[in-house]
């Protein structure tokens, strides 16, 4: 039959919890053994987890890191409701049903090697996955800017990497990215040491303002985070005439395109359309989602 290329691209795995680490503000790093998902996942993809048999509806979580070699998938999430709280109670050795990987990934373009990654709160994980992929591809020069209004789920430290065009006092970085050789900077309104005092999108604007036109023409923006942050990111990208891809979230039931429960309204040449966040996204062109 024609057009069945999508078949057998998502895997259902009975995933063992390998580790779960708690950070302030009910943030958790969760590592699951899920070899098929680890082998096939791409940055921007997510998995649909059954948090507990008591709560049969699954929860979509962005993938933060994978190890195809070791067969694990890692997530960073915040316990915000009943499902994620039950997930937070899982301990090493427990099992979690995982459906994944799901979704259209980010698509960086080599002609725009200056990749600006903007992550807010629990929108940080897919940016880490994308940074991990880009550092292995020497064509790209990513810069990650993360914002959070609760303590970052890692111990920030002064960056080893100089980044021109940023305020001199903004030195706090995510150690994992720093060790990877990916420069990062942090922003918050909470006055955390070494962080930019303001919104992460204001930090992005500050950096872009100081690029010359030739450098700016090499920038592409990727973002994930709360809806207002994504709207602000789209506005910044529009002001500097930059392509921008955003990863969205919405309540999901099936997560494979069957129920149309997770749609977002997008603008297309043919007029407005409702696109499924699960399989038409979660990555969308920011200009299709956010109006002028």
């Amino acid at each position: 039959m024609s057009d069945q290329a999508h078949r057998d691209t998502i895997f259902l795995e009975d995933a063992e919890v390998l580790s779960q680490e708690a950070y302030p503000a009910e943030q958790y790093f969760l590592r699951l053994r899920a070899p098929e998902c680890a082998r096939h996942a791409l940055p921007g993809g997510f998995a649909h987890l059954r948090c507990d048999p008591l709560l049969p509806m699954r929860r979509p979580l962005s993938i933060m890191r994978v190890s195809p070699e070791e067969g694990w998938v890692e997530f960073l999430y915040k316990a915000v409701g009943e499902g994620t709280r039950l997930l937070a109670a899982k301990r090493p050795g427990d099992r979690v049903s995982l459906l994944g990987p799901i979704g259209r990934p980010f698509e960086p373009h080599p002609e725009r090697p200056r990749v600006l990654l903007i992550g807010g709160g629990v929108g940080i994980p897919p940016m880490i996955f994308l940074a991990d992929a880009l550092r292995r591809d020497r064509r790209f020069r990513p810069l990650a800017l993360f914002g959070s209004e609760v303590p970052f789920p890692f111990q920030a430290r002064p960056s080893q990497h100089l980044v021109g065009g940023l305020p001199a006092e903004v030195i706090a970085a995510m150690p994992l990215l720093d060790d990877w050789g990916v420069p990062s900077r942090l922003a918050s309104l909470q006055g955390y040491a070494g962080c930019f005092s303001g919104y992460v999108t204001d930090l992005a604007r500050h950096w872009l303002d100081r690029l010359d036109a030739a450098a700016r023409a090499q920038v592409e923006v990727f973002a994930c985070g709360p809806h207002p942050m994504l709207a602000a990111t789209a506005a910044v990208a529009r002001d500097f005439d930059l392509p921008c891809q955003v990863s969205l979230e919405e309540f999901m039931a099936c997560a494979v395109g069957g129920c149309a429960g997770c749609v977002v309204e997008v603008r297309t040449p043919a007029g407005p359309a409702m696109k499924r966040v699960c399989v038409d996204g979660p990555v969308f062109d920011a200009y299709q989602v956010f109006a002028d």
Partner: peptide, 15 residues
């Protein structure tokens, strides 16, 4: 109806 789209969506899942 309404759970499996237009018949092909669930075949994304192996098995």
């Amino acid at each position: 109806s309404g759970c499996v789209g237009f018949g092909e969506e669930y075949t994304r899942i192996r098995g």
